[in-house]
Design a protein around this nucleic acid. Sequence first.
DNA 1: TTGTAGGCGTTATCAT
DNA 2: ATGATAACGCCTACAA
Lengths: 365, 365
Amino acid sequence: LTTRKPRTRATLRDVAQDAGVSFSAVSKALRAIPGVSAAMRARVQESAQRLGYRPHAAARGMRGQTFTLGVLISDLRNPFFSEIFAGLDAALASTPYQPFFGIGGADPATENAIVDSMIDRQMDGVILIGPTIQPPDLQQIAKEIPTAVIGVHLPKVGSLDTINNDDELGGRLVVQHLHALGRQRITYLTLDPMPQKDGVTVYRERGYREEMQRLGLDKHIRILGVTSDSEQIRHVALSLLRSSRPPDAIFCWTDYVAFEVIGAARELGLSVPGDVAVVGYDNTPFCRLPQNALTSVDQSGRLLGQQAGRLLLDRIAGRTTSQHFVVTPTLVARASTEVLAPSTDGSEASRRARSRTARAAASVR
Amino acid sequence: LTTRKPRTRATLRDVAQDAGVSFSAVSKALRAIPGVSAAMRARVQESAQRLGYRPHAAARGMRGQTFTLGVLISDLRNPFFSEIFAGLDAALASTPYQPFFGIGGADPATENAIVDSMIDRQMDGVILIGPTIQPPDLQQIAKEIPTAVIGVHLPKVGSLDTINNDDELGGRLVVQHLHALGRQRITYLTLDPMPQKDGVTVYRERGYREEMQRLGLDKHIRILGVTSDSEQIRHVALSLLRSSRPPDAIFCWTDYVAFEVIGAARELGLSVPGDVAVVGYDNTPFCRLPQNALTSVDQSGRLLGQQAGRLLLDRIAGRTTSQHFVVTPTLVARASTEVLAPSTDGSEASRRARSRTARAAASVR
DNA sequence: TTGTAGGCGTTATCAT
DNA sequence: ATGATAACGCCTACAA
């Protein structure tokens, strides 16, 4: 049980008086800056401790850093975010930086306003997760504040860092997996309207499209758009499944869309994967549940978050060249695409697809 | 398509120079404070606009408000939070206040540290959602910063505002519903270790316990603890369902626990609700999906969030007496407790339980 | 109605 | 190694 010590909002001057030294000495001592004796440091720290001194962030902000990072989340619905957070948290542990999260409405205007408010507050850097803000504006932001972007592919842009999984490969993996199981009429459900032309769904679509062509399934290529509204997704799924020539597999741009599709299939009395196979993306926790048993692409959100944190700190520390980090995704097969033998230990009836055990490896372009 | 205007970080002085007036006139003009001519205000605003002036938050923070609110989220897993956010967002729209979110590890030490970092940053107020921070520390926090707490029942505490649904009634509603359907061996799955003795799960448990007694089901009272780890939940659910005398209904403290229970039942080849009925809490979006069709208690997160925002703004504006807001929950019946006739319009096979149509009404104690 | 003088708590620079 | 001093940008008196 921790107990809060009643904090008195002591200032540097208070500590200085208590320790009997000048306040500028305190400033140096507390930041462990060279040019201060060990004895003084000890005395000062003792006083600071006892008085419950904490630096005044606004005052700091006037002179330099605030040790505050802003993280923009566009789509709160997507539980994938919590994995990214875990990685970010790990990257920031044992640093003085504190992340604060702004939640956007998945439209550029709102998101721009939130980023502005982060800049106004003199945050030291921002991480944008799946923003709908367009590349020109992203570059503009990067001019004003160190910026890392997750979920937009901008390998050519030099002013900011990007962190992504290889979405094109992800799309390919899904088609390969389904094709190996004998599926042909594979439909892709993408996000529409698209947040950006360099966004992840576009790359997934490209991987899907090219792999379909490579496997000679050109004529089965079919792409439908869904929003993030669950009723709308359900309606699209229902009409797709009820159409005269329904697909035998549906690849969904993210897991929660796939859950809706499974729901729609069930509503129509169709069997998954008997009548239709379903694949998601992100491998979020609910994929594991037997009622979903959703085959999904794991893009190691934890690693994405961690790298975003690291790259941002690097950049704040002075790096000016840009880095573009790409993680290799893995397909996790579950019963929504093939019926698997129950595993012996009684745990989850799923396993990593053998043929693609490539661990989430990283490459820096 | 919005385009960012290249911001030059102009200061009050820059605007003053540009407009040919003193900088204090600018300060007043921009904040629409009486004592400034309309002509000047117009001139100043024009200049400010053109120069892309934005107030420097740190400098403001040194003198007074930062117009920043801190929101502490303890359990990121719970999608219920996104509803709360929607309400908060509504309450804050058209105010100059910007919320920033800190994410805690569901332990008091981390959460205290995050709140400290909010105080350090001179935020104007904090909203704590389901904190594990204990009441004494909560009161300590409230002494330092205007505070609103969601998800902890502290009707006696005068220094902060609380916003809750009536969890005890929620527990009762569930037992009544199940009893009316002929269930008797109703087990409650609570969160363990408990975040606090005044936390929501404790109140739900009390409602459960008292209603069970009232209905003469004393001997069927059974309470088990689960953590927030999905594997652990699954194991508890499996062993409960496999026990010699399994329950005929399981009431889960929150929806995602219920989803695990449904998964466990399915894993064992049991029918829901045939062999066991399942009820959740929060009525999160995935309850609706046919593969879950989860009966759940709706506590109107949107309203909770909106009230939290309003009460906090009130308090920042000067109110010193405390308010404790309680929302009446509603039970939403779905197929996890009773088999419902498919609705005619083809939409969700569920409906509000007729007998308890009490809309989410509010009362201030 | 407008302008001027402090001061908020830091950090950085410059003397000692 | 230590201490004094000048910013940083804004807001609130108070003076013109």
